[in-house]
Write a protein that binds this DNA or RNA. Structure first.
Lengths: 352, 352
DNA sequence: AGCGTCACAGCAAGCGCTTTCTATACGAGA
DNA sequence: TCTCGTATAGAAAGCGCTTGCTGTGACGCT
């Protein structure tokens, strides 16, 4: 029924071994023979059996990419960049690899399950994107799994996630802390003193680091930290909308809202606008990530640009062994403050 | 070095066959034996070899999802929905399947190559999203490939793409034509007579259908078609920006811009605003798709909502054989007109 | 008591490929 | 002319798993 290597061999009047060598192209085969084989392959419309060759060669051309939410451009952009480097069709690299994009939905269990699934497939490499969970047993389980993967020869790269010591994984971490700090420094510099903060899910490293940066900037400016100025939520628009209403309820006099990311910031803008507040005249808003739509917001969003595509591409190259891993197995990728229309000098007395 | 089925069998004092049956769970195994095996699996930290079982069982648990651009939420949302249904970890379905998301970048060659790669992996199912190319040799090649896949038992579903006759593929097509028509009818109803159209890439079915709908509405209203009122571009923001400037150059008196999709519409808004025109007082703008950010645009975008998540979920279920394919192997999914702030009555004489 | 019936468990034959090792043929150098 | 080295092709042994078929006790039936 299905065409096998042997069929091709028979048609080309050579041994299966020869066909295999022609197809893998790393063994001397006479030009005339090669041609005969290729012709047979073509005539029979032969397609290699992936599982069989993976089994025999003990390698596979699958590369796993773990993302929290594939529908979120934050991850989509990284995934796209990673994929362009791992050498799928059209990619820069040689071999034809298949990217397996796994949507964890931010769930620790799924993350672990996907890692096992990839291990089962004997993936050539795995790239984990996005922040890690700080849940202890889970973190340990992930670390153990990563260790196993690297031991089995799978290259593991963390992209936008803190290093996982002793796992053999290479880490490209985002400087969320520094970015958060810069952003808040900018607002403080404009004269803001009453800032609300909309954080992401509490147990994520990304959330914590951004918040730490924010608070560090406040502390440095001698602004006392008010726990009521922070509202926790998710990394989506709705969360920003609701959290902003809550912040406004708690302190109607705030002059700036710092959001966990751009989507949250957009929700915040909507809530402010509906509350009859102007941006940035009444309240300034800041986001994080600088996703493509942020520049189109009205007013355009002040945010921290994260080089998602660059970082993803680099992670992809490292995963494929085409770029030297950074010294120490880890590097920090910095963000860049993008000052735009959504932040301005606060009205009132603070506008010194 | 690596643990195999045989190792587990030895440890549990059973035959490899029994271990396999415990793991696949479709054969009577005494409870006590099963327990012993499971214990051994756990102790040895055994992970099944995917390629080996795929080879032996002649089936794989890989499901391919082809998208044009994974960084675009249009595709991200569909991919996410499909994946949630194919039964990866956390999905509703039983078996643990791995979704392979393939980024074609809109390139016909890559599309074909990915299809071959999936065929090579003996994918259980393949879902193709997004419009098709109208390039004839390519379309024929894709059709032939799909035919081969379905013949080999791979379920093929087209999501948001016109049917491919005689390929055995199930199609869930979007009613781009009807949506485009509704949208333009809405604008005409408001009194617009001079409408510019920003189309997507010329050779895509999606582009053509949306444009056809637009023109049908114009024709029905007796508005003569001006070829200069259409500018071709890509499905991104920049394209919308540039095309709008071009439209304005060609006809400074236009009162409405209809964009190929929401991203394009956002670019159009930016261009209009920079040209000193108000939306919708001076010029109305309409998009297509109703992506999440569209409601946050200022003013919120009038657009056609496509049920991307629903369609993706349905495609996923059909691909997994968990939902009956529509009669005739195809169904049309309609969009819904969302009238929002970006469209309004035109100024001037037309405002009858 | 004798025998058919189940419920399990094991044997062994592959699945389709890769790769090591071996065989052959040719030309070159001695 | 004979022996080697070189280039190329083939034979065959798996890779780790699944599964059809074949036992083999224990049980219930007559």
């Amino acid at each position: 029924m299905t065409v096998t290597l042997a069929d091709v061999a028979a048609r080309a009047q050579v041994s299966p071994a020869t066909v295999s060598r022609v197809l893998n192209g790393n063994y001397p085969v006479a030009a005339s023979t090669r041609e005969r084989v290729l012709k047979a392959v073509d005539e029979l419309d032969y397609v290699l059996n992936g599982p069989a060759s993976a089994l025999a060669a003990a390698t596979s051309d699958l590369v796993g990419i773990l993302v929290n939410d594939i529908a979120d451009p934050f991850f989509g952009i990284m995934a796209s960049a990673i994929q362009s480097e791992i050498g799928g069709p059209g990619g820069r690299a040689g071999g034809e690899r298949l990217a397996v994009v796994c949507n964890t939905g931010g769930s620790p269990e799924r993350e672990l399950t996907y890692l096992t699934l990839l291990q089962r497939q004997r993936a050539a490499a795995v790239v984990l994107t996005g922040g890690a969970m700080e849940n202890e047993p889970h973190a340990a389980a992930v670390a153990a799994k990563l260790r196993k993967l690297t031991d089995a020869g799978t290259r593991v790269v963390l992209c936008g996630r803190p290093p996982a010591p002793d796992t053999g994984a290479i880490a490209l971490a985002f400087d969320n802390r520094g970015g958060g700090q810069q952003l808040t420094e900018h607002l403080i510099g404009l004269g803001h003193r009453r800032l609300g903060y909309i954080a992401g899910p509490e147990e994520r490293t990304t959330t914590r680091h951004r918040l730490e940066g924010h608070r560090a900037a406040l502390a440095a400016a001698g602004i006392e930290e008010d726990p009521r100025a922070t509202v926790w939520g998710r990394y989506d628009r709705t969360s920003g909308y609701e959290a902003t209403l809550e912040l406004l309820r708690r302190d109607p006099s705030l002059t700036a809202v710092v959001a966990a990311n751009d989507s949250v910031a957009l929700g915040a803008c909507a809530a402010l606008r509906e509350s009859g507040l102007r941006i940035p005249e009444d309240v300034s808003v800041a986001g994080f990530d600088d996703l493509p739509f942020s520049v189109d917001a009205v007013p355009a969003l002040t945010t921290v640009r994260l080089p998602l595509a660059e970082a993803g591409a680099r992670a992809g190259r490292i995963a494929m062994g085409r770029e030297e891993p950074p010294p120490g197995g880890m590097a920090t990728v910095r963000g860049e403050l993008m000052v735009r229309g959504s932040s301005g000098v606060p009205r009132g007395p603070a506008a010194a």
